[in-house]
């Protein structure tokens, strides 16, 4: 039996909204420690790794490991019916063929209950182990989203060049070019506005703008995003949850 109660439905809404345009369906792997997902987009370029740790939930129990195959579009429609501030409880019996979803209004005496049919998903997992990191950038997630959107009008690629004291985002396209430079900044009054760059080795990587557009749909999940880059390796874009994370691994582009 799985039962997880979110203090606010908005958290699961944001998670599903951040994932559903990359992957249409995925397995939610539920254990006593929480819920995790690994899913890859159709083009095999972008991988989503989600961990919702047990502490994220107001209440959580999972007696036996279970895998729930979920259509994210369908889940999004159902959880869209609840108010952001509602309690949201998901539950499933062992060997269940449906996921039970309950919203409780915190003010009115109102409880809404839905069942989502589960899917049998045969997904092959990639072995994503710990990776070396040459450069790590942490910046406000809204700033990163704006950089990606602004650069996308110029080109289908975004080049990220990291040196000791700056990160340069560059797009070169038919209509022209764009450059945005960010530098480390410590904002004591507004720590969420701080920018940090740590570097072991200079980085010059290009990523597909359309995949970055999918990644920045996670912006509302966290005020900050951490970008980990390694030469000729996938970039890791991490949005922290109150306890856990939503990570995207994006394969870089390469020159002929």
């Amino acid at each position: 039996m799985l039962e997880g109660k979110f203090e606010e439905a908005s958290l699961l809404k944001k998670i599903v909204e951040a994932m559903k345009d990359c992957v249409s369906s995925c397995n939610f792997n539920c254990t006593e420690n929480g819920i995790s997902v690994q899913a890859v987009d159709n083009s095999r370029v972008l991988l989503i790794s989600l961990l919702i740790e047990k502490d994220t939930f107001e209440e959580y129990r999972c007696d036996r490991n279970i895998t729930l195959g979920v259509g994210l579009g369908s889940l999004s429609k159902i959880i869209g019916n609840g108010a952001n501030s509602d309690y949201l409880t998901i539950s499933a019996d062992d060997d269940a063929d449906k996921l039970n979803i309950i919203f409780e209004d915190k003010v009115k005496d109102k409880i809404s209950e839905y069942n989502l049919k589960l899917l049998d998903i045969d997904a092959d997992l990639l072995d994503v182990g710990p990776m070396d990191t040459d450069a790590t950038i942490t910046l406000p997630s809204a700033d990163f989203a704006k950089i990606c959107k602004d650069m996308k009008v110029l080109s289908e690629s975004l080049q990220i060049i990291v040196t000791k004291d700056s990160a340069l985002f560059q797009s070169v396209g038919d209509i022209g070019t764009g450059n945005i430079v960010i530098r480390p900044k410590t904002d004591i009054d507004h720590p969420e506005e701080s920018v940090t760059i740590s570097l072991d080795k200079p980085i010059d990587l290009s990523f597909g703008s359309k995949y970055l557009s999918d990644i920045i749909k996670a912006t509302s999940l966290s005020q900050k995003v951490t970008i980990k880059l390694t030469d000729q390796s996938p970039g890791v874009f991490e949005y922290k949850l109150p306890s856990g994370y939503l990570r995207f691994y994006l394969a870089p582009k390469f020159d002929e």
Binding site: D127, S157, S206, K253, F254
Partner: peptide, 14 residues
């Protein structure tokens, strides 16, 4: 021109 790597090349070299 630029080409797109796929993830399998990095995480599942077999």
């Amino acid at each position: 021109p630029q080409y797109q790597y796929i993830l399998k090349l990095f995480f599942d070299p077999e």
